[in-house]
Each structure stands twice: as structure tokens, then as C-alpha cells.
Design a protein around this nucleic acid. Sequence first.
RNA 1: GGCGCUGUACCCAAGCGGUCUAAGGGGAAGGUCUGCAAAACCUUUAUUCGUCGGUUCGAAUCCGACCGGCGCCUCCA
Length: 469
Amino acid sequence: MLVIQNTLSGKKEEFKPINPPHVSMYVCGPTVYDYFHIGNARSFLISDMIRRYLEYKGYNVKFVMNLTDVDDKIIHKSKKENRSFSQVADTFTQAFFEDIEKLKVKPATLYPKATGHISEIITLISNLIDNGFAYNIDGNVFYNVARFKDYGKLSGKKTDELEVGARIEINNEKLNPLDFALWKKAKEDEPSWNSPWGKGRPGWHIECSAMSCKHLGDTFDIHAGGSDLIFPHHENEIAQSEAATGKPFVNYWMHFGFLNINEEKMSKSLGNFFTARDILAKYPAEAIRMFLFQTHYASPLNFSEEAIQAAQKGLEKFTNLVDKINSELSAPSQAAPMTDFDFPTFYSAFESTMDDDFNSPKAIAVLFDFIKEVNRKITESPSLNSGFYLKTKEFLEKTAIGVFGITSFEKEVPASSGIEDKLIELLLSIRATAKKEKNFTLADQIRDELLNLGVAIRDTKDKTLFKKV
RNA sequence: GGCGCUGUACCCAAGCGGUCUAAGGGGAAGGUCUGCAAAACCUUUAUUCGUCGGUUCGAAUCCGACCGGCGCCUCCA
């Protein structure tokens, strides 16, 4: 039984999709005004992991991630760089897709864009005005928070208390400082669309209501995002959607902890960030994923290169076993008796852990236990039935690869594979001869100098493996 | 000011009232294997969970106070 910590109730609840085996899931995606940073990446990777685990469970997941491609930051950047807002958005949309692919994120079912849904947005705003939940003041349309009695139910905020502490610049046009823009009247040199209220563009929150409704329906299963979106963004989405449809908007709200740096939230405005690109240039996607999944999604996580390196080191246990399996399966031995190994226990340990609100750190601990147990078998008996290796491979494919994407059975083909690998093989065969002749000085010299060149080698019984480091 | 999260070994981190004399990873130390390495395996590395009280037969887990860290209330994943 899968349970999910639901922000709406503040409790763990059993997950019951509206229409099983289908699951509808919406995650707030990027505003495409810059490269995303590793903190943003955390959200993308956590939602990827959640989606993958739901699929592991047999659900058919419709996973929608929006792209905010018109907004103040994009406009600001376009003015600064003297480009059109759509050029800026296109550039960083493309960069977004490049980066998530490198991070081995499984593509969402749909990536709807705000600018592709202007008519849906206008229809939704009209609906809200007609029902008295919104008002138009000189081409600016605002949501009337006071009209929505459940306002604050997600974030636990009370409207009267908010007003007290609010440092919002008071906009006299609004009836209430908490009211937020649904439609922003066009200014000079700003992108705009025609609407019943004149030229303008959508406010930030309305796009998510419009797009999630269009692609997932009035009520859907899971809506997720970073904790900083709880208020006001998700609170406002609820207000908009539920006022418009009269139905519950979302059944399960999930919120992710921040990625901190020096114990402070990583953010663009603080300037204390690393882009995912920068990190990907130094570390493989698997190491980044491992680093992130070794902490529970809702907890804050402090970023440090040491931590990524520790994760990468731990990952070697996976790759070493994968290499071993690959080499065993390339020369299968059916002869040995079938190995006695309790796969079902590991599957159920993995599942019961992940079923508990996606406890990935504990699930990864299960995987390490599994690896240790497999290695112990291998150590005990020199020759094992290939069926054992096949089942081991299948386990890793379903869990470590299918859910976490932290290793792979496919060999990465390096760009310069041709002659380079052949030269290494040549050196290794010379070294093998040297070893046979007990010329260990030469053998060690070859090993040391290969290592200096970034090639680590490892002798096994019948052959020598190498990998580039 | 309001609301919320958090403090576990050298570092990261799970733990959701009893199986905790507390998983897992990194690091460190010793051993087996190996020509030597590497990998793998074995052993060791918190009688203790920020501090002090309380509830309970029983608490890292619940309650209170205090100390420290963070976040939201304004764009932010």
C-alpha cells in the first residue's frame, strides 16, 4: 500500500488514484529565462523518481510538466539582451530539454507552454469574473481572495494574519492586498495578447490552473513542486481552479525540500547557485541522482561536491557488479546448479520502503544490502548458474535502473572508442605476457602509467578489465 | 509578528512508542584473497540520538522549556 505525505492534510494518506490504473500528475516546471540550477534539478529528478516508481507499481502515469514561457523575468532578460521574449524562451527551453536529457530524466508525457494556452486562460478568467471571483480594473484582472472561503487551506495561512505581516507593496487598485493578478494589462514593449479586457498577458498562477485542467481534468491525482510554491502559487491555483469548477482541484499535494548551499537555500536571487550544466560537466548524471536520492525528497539537502563524490564512490559498487554480470552473461554457464537466493525478500523490502512516501534513501540501502548479498554468493562459489545472474540483472534493472536511474547495463561508448581502446588492449596483452614471464616490474609499470593517463585496470582470473576515470 | 521544518557517529543519512546495546553510503583501522594492486568478502568505528525536564511498564521516536540551524509569509523548485 502506497502512502503519500499530503500537504493538504499534513498527513500520510493511502494513495488511491481517481481512475486506476491511470494516474494524473502535474509538476510545476521551469520558467525558461536562464539555465536551471542544481536546486531546480532536484525537483525535476524527484518528480522523475516518483513517476518511475508509480510506473514500477504498474500505474499508467500521465505526467504533465508546464513550461512558463512568458513572465516578468523573461521579459526583463529579453530587454536587457535586446532580443524578443520568445527568443529568450526558446533558447532556454531548448537548454532545459538538453539538460534534463543529460540528467537521464524520463520525458514527461506533455510539456505544455503558457503561450500555447492563452485561449484556455482567457476562458478560465472569464469564468471567474462571471462567477464573481475576479474583477477587472482598467485592463488588469485580479482574483478576489475574500470570495474564496477556503483560501489558505493548503499553506495553513490565515488571510487576516497575512495582511499584518505582509511586506507587499500596496497596490491601491486591488480590493485586498492579497488579491493577485490573473491578467496583466500590456505595457509598452511587452508581449501581449488580445482579450476581453484589452491587450495583456496572463499572470503567473493562472497558467497552471488552465493547463492542468485542460490536460488532466478538473480533478487530478498528484500535484507536486518545491516547498516554496506552497504559498502563494499552489494556494492560488486551488483558489482559481476550485472557484471555476466547483470541484476539488487535486487529491495529493507533494512538496519537495530545498537544496541548500552552506545551509542556505540555493536560489537565483541569492546568487549562490550552480547550474545543472556546470555540475554535469564535472559529474555523471548517475552520481547526481544518487546524491539526491540518498536523502528523502521532503528534507532539506545541503549541496557539496564532497557529497556528490561520496555518492559517486558508492555507485562503484553498482557498476562493479554490473560489469561482473555482463562478463558472466557473455559466457553463460548453465552447468552450475541454480543458486539459492531470496529475490522475493529484496523485492518486497524495496517496495515496502518505497511505498512509505517514496523513502528512496532507505530503498537505496536495500539495494546496497542486495549487492552485498549477491557478492557474498559470488565470493562463496566461484561458478554460478547464469540464471542467477539473469535474475540479479532483472532486479537491478527494475529497481536501481528503472526507478532511480543510477546505473546502466549499457556500455557508454566513448567518443574516441576506436584506436584508443585498441591501444589499451594492446598494452594489456603485453602486460599479460609480462605477468606470465613474472616480469612484474614491466607489468606494474604499464599499470601505473595507464593510471596516469586515466585508465584504471583490474585483474580478474582470466582477463584484465579497464575503465577510464 | 504569524505559520512550518529541523538538530542522529569523523562526513552524508534512515528511523514515524517496544525487533534500536540505532539501517545504508563515504571515510578510517585490521584481516582474507592477490606476485603486488584493484575488486569482493569478513571484522572494528554512536549503550547513544542538541540540552534539561515530563508522560509511559517502555522514547531517538510523544509533550514542555531552552539552545542552535533553515524556510514560507515578496519572484523563487
